[in-house]
Amino acid sequence: MTDDNVSRLLQELQITNQERYELVQAARSAIYSVVPDASERGLYGGFMFSGKAQFCGVFAYREHVSVEFGRGCDLDDPHGVLEGSGKLRRHIKLFSAADITGKFLELYVDAACRNSQCK
């Protein structure tokens, strides 16, 4: 389930940065492949995903797309791809669609979902 803000954000992104739009769409697809019944809201200028609880967000920046985990500090990082040194939040930067598999995005999304008990 998505809200109206998701459609608006996607339209704006497609107009302003086609490359980032395509990468956001690929990241969204990867997230839905792990949590097919996730809800999605347009919030904070990005796309927030939740089940029973919020588990990640996708944000487009000028040079990359960031998949952010609000409780990323609780995630194991066997592949060393999580970035961030704040108290809680961690993120994975995607520069191309190849990073989705190369940085094991689906593994981290699954872990974030399990940790937040989103299912």
Rank of each mutant, 00 (worst) to 15 (best):
R8M: 08
V67Y: 03
A112S: 13
K93A: 06
A30E: 13
L13Q: 05
A27E: 01
E106F: 00
G45K: 11
C56A: 07
C118M: 07
E83N: 09
S7H: 10
C56V: 01
S66H: 07
D37Q: 13
H64D: 05
N5S: 12
F104T: 02
L43K: 15
C113E: 01
L75I: 09
M1L: 10
L105D: 01
L43Y: 07
V58D: 00
Q25G: 05
S29W: 03
L94H: 07
Q18N: 10
G80F: 09
G70S: 12
L82R: 11
L9S: 03
L105V: 04
D3T: 11
P78F: 11
A53M: 10
D110C: 03
V34S: 08
Q18L: 12
R71E: 05
A60Y: 01
F55K: 02
F59C: 04
R8H: 11
I31E: 02
L10H: 10
F95T: 13
P78Q: 11
L75N: 08
N115E: 10
E83Q: 14
K87F: 05
I15G: 07
A111V: 05
G42F: 08
Q11R: 15
G70D: 11
G84P: 07
I100A: 01
Q54G: 12
V58M: 02
C113K: 11
R89P: 02
Q54I: 01
D4S: 14
G72S: 04
S66Y: 09
V65H: 02
S29H: 11
S33M: 05
R8G: 02
A38V: 03
L75V: 09
E12T: 07
A112W: 01
L107T: 12
R90W: 07
L105M: 07
E63R: 15
D110Y: 04
D76F: 07
F69A: 00
L105P: 08
D110K: 15
A53Q: 14
V109F: 04
T16A: 15
Q117S: 12
E63L: 07
G45D: 08
Y32V: 02
E22N: 15
T101S: 14
P78T: 12
G45A: 10
I100G: 00
D37L: 09
I92A: 00
V81C: 07
A53W: 07
D76N: 12
C56E: 01
M1F: 08
I92Q: 01
E19F: 09
A27D: 01
L43S: 09
D3E: 10
R90M: 06
A60M: 05
Y32R: 14
D3G: 13
F49A: 02
G51N: 10
F47D: 00
R28C: 01
E68L: 03
E22P: 03
M48L: 13
